[in-house]
Computed example of a mutant assay.
Amino acid sequence: METARLLAAADGPLKINWAEMPTYNTIMAVAAGAGLLLVVGLGRRLAGRGTVLHPEGWALAFGVLGLILTLTGLHMTLTWPLAAGGFPFDNIIFGEPSLAFGVLMLAAALFLWRRGTILEEHPDRPGYVAGIAGPVSIFIVGMGLACFGIAAAGIWYELFAAPEQEPISGLLADHPMIEATFISVLYALVGVGAVLFPAALGAPRGPLGRVVGFCWALAGLLFLIFGALNYFTHIGLIVNTM
């Protein structure tokens, strides 16, 4: 899901030197989508009175996804540009948010592993979580604002459009604003949830908590499905442009 005009050759069929164009936003999208769904799922369990948490299971899930996002995000963030054939903005759009989300998930995994029993038995789970997560929520708000910036850039510069050589997504190559709008809306949804996160911490069942849950659940589901779809479309793009 890249900008077709930046990949297009002046004449002849599109050819890409894939040795200089590493791409793995497939697994990043799947992991990020699953991570958002996990956060929403855990939030609902925390809000339910007497609900059994099984914190070790959540810690393992957060740890697995956090490790994937941290490693891929860190590599993409520090390797500038990751793709020598173009797309230095991918380092910012995909690498940095993945790194931020991955580290946050690893921190949550560590907390759940070491303090999960205390959390499960606490009489006021939302209040306890609000006290723990309050300080880091400042960073979450900042990354939410960053997601707004990415969404605006996606629309303004018509990013994310696939070339016609990419299966399925390439059918929209002549209409770049469709995919640009779709991906930008996903980032905007994540941004809305992140900005409202501190206010929703203490009352996950309140109106703001429900908005955060809706935004992250919808964005997570779409990121997961789109990332899984890209396993086919990106393989097809590679085959068609070697």
Rank of each mutant, 00 (worst) to 15 (best):
G154N: 03
W156T: 14
Y157W: 14
E158S: 00
E158P: 00
E158H: 03
E158Y: 04
A161I: 06
A161W: 02
A162M: 12
I168L: 15
S169K: 11
S169G: 00
S169D: 09
G170K: 03
L171Q: 10
L171M: 15
L172H: 06
L172C: 05
A173L: 01
D174E: 14
D174F: 01
D174S: 10
H175D: 14
M177Y: 12
I178Q: 10
I178V: 15
E179Y: 06
F182A: 11
I183Q: 06
V185E: 09
V185C: 10
L186E: 13
L186H: 13
A188V: 02
A188H: 11
A188T: 03
L189N: 02
L189C: 08
V190I: 15
V190E: 13
V190K: 02
G191N: 09
G191E: 12
V192H: 08
A194H: 02
A194D: 01
V195E: 04
F197Q: 08
P198F: 08
A199F: 03
A199G: 01
A200Y: 06
L201G: 01
G202C: 05
A203D: 11
A203G: 01
A203V: 02
G206T: 05
G206Y: 04
P207F: 08
P207W: 15
P207C: 05
P207M: 11
L208C: 04
G209Y: 04
R210G: 13
F214N: 08
W216I: 11
L218Y: 08
A219M: 06
L222W: 14
F223Q: 02
F226D: 10
